[in-house]
Computed example of a mutant assay.
Amino acid sequence: MARYVIGDVHGCAKALRSLLAALQLGSDDEVIFLGDYVDRGPNSRGVVEQLIDLGQRSRVIALRGNHEIMLQAVAVHGMDDSVWLRSGGKATVVSYGGSITKIPSAHFDFFHALQRYHETEREIFVHAMYDPQLGIDDQNDELTYWTHLPQPLPIAHTSGKRVYVGHTPQPRGEVLWRPHLVGVDTYCFGGGYLSAVDLETGATTQADRHGHIRRVPIERALHALARWGKWLRGS
């Protein structure tokens, strides 16, 4: 069984389609998505449709991002849409035919079923950030959904588990690698890539917004970790 984590998609349906095809997922394979499926990119509807379809063929664990929170706040709870539209929601509305009333009920079912976090024996997955001293179930929603990674980066989680996050775009399109923390939002909608990290090997498969694939060997991640270690030692 292969296991992958995929960062923020943000409406990049073409990138997602190419990435999933490159992974060649089977029924026993597992993919963990870190949230922010909608907004900013050109085809949020197409992204959600692919995720629903993938869930029928492979094991999918889909987390909630802050952009899904905004969409649901407007479409379900009738909140003012000005902040959401300024944050990329206009592209989502266009992808659904110009009105949020055209969002299919199956898509709302998908949004409603999204998870706040996912935890395994070795890993923690959240959309945005975490408090290193608190159990993952006790995290503040402001951190879980809205807070970008600070500088300096947060320390290791008290559980000792590696934390995988999205939300903070990596402007060079490269996965952020640290021994305790991996940032998988590689800025697809802004000219970077949509990234899938193999959780067993660390090898990364990426697709740009046009659907072009590139594969990043684990050696690049190891090099990033080595550079970080040298920086910590002040050498």
Rank of each mutant, 00 (worst) to 15 (best):
M79L: 15
I124W: 04
T168A: 10
P150Y: 10
D137Y: 02
A128D: 01
Q151S: 12
G97V: 10
W177N: 00
S87K: 04
F125N: 07
E68G: 03
K90T: 12
H157F: 08
L149C: 12
H127D: 01
S82E: 12
V184Q: 09
V163G: 05
E174Y: 04
S87N: 15
L176R: 02
E68P: 00
H148M: 14
Y187H: 15
Y193V: 14
G183K: 14
P171C: 05
L71E: 11
I61Q: 09
W177H: 01
H67I: 08
H167K: 03
G98D: 10
V60Q: 08
N66F: 12
Q139N: 10
N140C: 08
H180W: 14
G88C: 02
P104W: 11
A75D: 14
G191A: 08
R172F: 05
R122W: 07
N140V: 06
F189Q: 12
L181T: 07
G97C: 12
G97W: 05
H127V: 00
K90L: 14
K102M: 10
S99Y: 03
G135S: 09
I124C: 02
V184I: 15
V76Y: 05
G160T: 11
Y187C: 04
W146S: 06
E142L: 04
Y193D: 06
Y187K: 13
G190M: 08
V76T: 10
S87T: 03
D131N: 00
M129W: 01
L134Q: 13
D137T: 01
V126H: 06
P104D: 11
G191L: 09
S99F: 03
F189V: 15
S195G: 01
I124K: 02
A106G: 01
T144F: 02
S95F: 04
D131Y: 03
P152C: 13
G89I: 03
E123S: 01
D109A: 14
G192F: 07
M79Q: 14
F125H: 14
G183I: 09
V94C: 04
C188H: 00
Y130N: 01
D131Q: 03
I124D: 03
G166T: 07
F125I: 12
F189D: 11
P104Q: 11
P152R: 11
I136D: 04
W84F: 09
F111D: 11
S159P: 13
M79K: 07
K90S: 13
G191F: 08
V74G: 06
L114H: 02
F125Q: 05
L134F: 05
R116D: 13
G78H: 09
H127T: 00
V74A: 04
L176Y: 02
H180F: 08
G78D: 13
L63D: 01
V60P: 10
H67P: 07
S159C: 11
E121K: 01
V182M: 13
E119S: 02
Y117V: 00
A62P: 11
G190V: 01
F111H: 12
G190E: 11
I136V: 15
L63T: 02
P169S: 07
P150L: 14
F189M: 12
H107V: 07
A75M: 09
T147E: 13
D185A: 04
D137G: 03
H167M: 13
L85V: 06
M79A: 12
P154N: 10
V93E: 15
A113Q: 09
H157V: 08
Y96E: 10
A91Y: 00
V83N: 06
P169Y: 02
T186N: 06
D81A: 14
K102D: 07
V182F: 10
V184C: 15
L153H: 14
